[in-house]
Simulated assay, not measured.
Amino acid sequence: MASLLFSLPKLSPFSSLRCSHSRRLSPPPMYFSLKSNLSSSRALSGSPLFLRTTSTSSPPSLVSPKPSIATVFAAKGYKRKTHKASAKRFRVTGTGKIVRRRAGKQHLLGKKNTKRKLRLSKMVPVNRSDYDNVIGALPYLKVNRKAI
């Protein structure tokens, strides 16, 4: 009884082969043995039907082994852009509130009295109903939504 041993090139158990239709195929087993009686009527024809895995020492599985360590891929989302005009108009206080300037202090200041101009030059908090609009324009703003 003759036994022939064929070896294929070693592949990593994590690598895969691709056929012409881009389907993933499992890697082939590492060793095949061809056991047949050469004097019998079943001559070697090179057909893969005669190929069997070796059973003498821990046969390799036909199914590719699963990796022992799970691979985790960090799925990062889309990198959002800051609206630069909004970044110049809004600030965040130490407590996490969004503040803005009052309108009406740019021009025609001669007819406004000093008290009114002083009031217009101060920063005021943004209304809570506008928080979603401001945070949408400034996605990386460190805002405390519970602060009021």
Rank of each mutant, 00 (worst) to 15 (best):
K66M: 03
T82W: 03
P65M: 12
S12F: 08
S12D: 15
R23F: 03
R102M: 10
A85H: 01
S61T: 15
G110Q: 15
S57I: 13
K10Y: 03
A147R: 07
S7T: 13
Y31C: 01
S121Y: 01
I98G: 09
S58W: 04
P48N: 00
F14W: 10
S15R: 13
G136W: 05
S40M: 05
G77A: 08
L44M: 08
F6E: 02
D130C: 04
N144Q: 04
K84Q: 12
S68F: 10
P59A: 13
I69V: 14
T82D: 06
R24T: 11
K66H: 08
S41W: 01
L8H: 14
C19V: 02
G110I: 08
R102S: 12
A85T: 11
A75D: 03
K66G: 00
K35E: 11
A87G: 01
L4I: 14
G46A: 01
L120G: 07
V63N: 09
K84S: 07
G77Y: 02
H21E: 14
P13C: 08
T54A: 11
K112S: 10
A43C: 00
N37G: 02
P60K: 07
S47P: 00
A43G: 03
R145S: 09
R18L: 15
V72P: 03
P60A: 13
S58V: 09
K10P: 01
P27G: 05
N127A: 15
R102P: 01
S121R: 15
V92L: 11
K97G: 02
P13G: 07
G94I: 02
V63E: 02
D130I: 00
L120N: 11
Y31T: 10
S33I: 03
H107F: 12
V124M: 02
S12M: 10
K112E: 08
N127V: 09
R89Y: 00
S57V: 12
M1T: 13
T95F: 01
A74N: 06
N133R: 13
R89P: 00
M30F: 08
S16M: 11
G110L: 09
L44E: 03
L141Q: 04
S20V: 08
R116N: 07
R100F: 05
V126S: 01
S47D: 10
K79F: 07
T95E: 13
D130N: 09
Y131N: 11
P139D: 05
H107M: 04
A103H: 09
V143H: 12
N37V: 06
P28Q: 14
P67G: 07
T54K: 09
V124C: 03
S26F: 01
I135E: 10
R91N: 06
S68L: 14
F73K: 13
P59G: 06
K35H: 08
F50P: 00
P13K: 14
P60H: 09
S36R: 05
M123P: 02
S22F: 07
S16T: 11
S36W: 12
P29H: 02
M30D: 08
F14Y: 14
V134E: 07
A137T: 05
S86F: 15
I69R: 15
G46T: 00
L5V: 15
L8K: 10
R119C: 02
F90N: 00
L44F: 15
K105H: 06
P27N: 11
L44P: 01
L11M: 15
F50G: 07
R102A: 05
R24E: 09
A87D: 07
S45V: 04
